[in-house]
C-alpha cells in the first residue's frame, strides 16, 4: 500500500474502529472477541484498500467484513454457538440499573439465530438500509425484512417490550424472504 493510501486508511480506520467494535459486540456479546473481530475486519479492508471504491460503500464493506468475521468466529469449534431452543421462560425486567439492562439486551440478542441477530443489529444499531444490510449479509432484501421482523419480535418478547403500533416491522409479510 502506498503511504498516501495508508494515511487515508488510517484516517478511515480511526473513525471506524470503535463503531465496528460496538457492532461486533452486539453480535457476539464479548468485548474481547468484538475487538478482535473489528481489527480482523479492518485488516481485511487494509489489504483490499487499493481495490475498493472509496466513494461508494466503504461503510458497507466494513460492516460486511466485521459480520463475516464474527460469524466465522462462531463457526470455530471452541467458539461454536449452540442454539438453545428453550428460550428462558421469562427474562425479568430489571429496573435496578443500566448495566443489568444492557446485559439483558445482550442476552436477548444472543438468543436470536445469527442471521436474525445480524439483521437487527445492522438495521437498528448500525443504521444500514435494507439494501445495504442485504449486501452485507449476501441475502435478498425480502429476507432482510423478514429476518429483521422475526428478530425484532423475538427480541421484544424477551425484553418484555410491546411493539409500537406504527412499527412497520409488525406488518412485514413473512413470505417476503421466500419471494426475494
Amino acid at each position: 500500500m502506498r503511504r498516501r493510501s495508508e494515511a487515508d486508511f488510517t484516517e478511515f480506520a480511526a473513525a471506524a474502529l470503535r463503531r465496528l467494535r460496538r457492532t461486533a459486540y452486539l453480535m457476539c456479546g464479548d468485548w474481547h472477541r468484538a475487538e478482535d473481530a473489528a481489527q480482523d475486519a479492518l485488516v481485511r479492508i487494509y489489504r483490499a484498500w487499493d481495490r475498493l471504491d472509496h466513494d461508494a460503500g466503504l461503510t458497507t464493506y466494513a460492516h460486511r467484513a466485521v459480520v463475516s468475521v464474527v460469524l466465522d468466529q462462531a463457526k470455530r469449534p471452541w467458539r461454536r454457538e449452540y442454539s438453545d431452543d428453550a428460550v428462558p421462560d421469562q427474562l425479568l425486567a430489571d429496573h435496578s440499573g443500566a448495566v443489568d439492562e444492557r446485559l439483558l439486551v445482550i442476552q436477548a440478542l444472543a438468543q436470536l439465530p445469527p442471521r436474525q441477530r445480524a439483521c437487527v443489529v445492522l438495521r437498528h444499531y448500525a443504521d444500514l438500509s435494507i439494501e445495504e444490510t442485504a449486501q452485507v449479509l449476501g441475502i435478498g432484501t425480502g429476507a432482510v425484512k423478514s429476518q429483521t421482523s422475526r428478530g425484532l419480535t423475538a427480541l421484544r418478547e424477551q425484553l418484555n417490550r410491546p411493539a409500537p403500533a406504527d412499527d412497520p416491522a409488525v406488518h412485514v409479510n413473512d413470505n417476503e424472504g421466500v419471494l426475494s
Partner: peptide, 12 residues
C-alpha cells in the same frame, strides 16, 4: 424502531 434502537445503543 427507537424502542429497540435505544436499548441497542445503550448495550453497546
Amino acid at each position: 424502531s427507537s424502542d429497540i434502537k435505544d436499548p441497542l445503543d445503550s448495550a453497546a
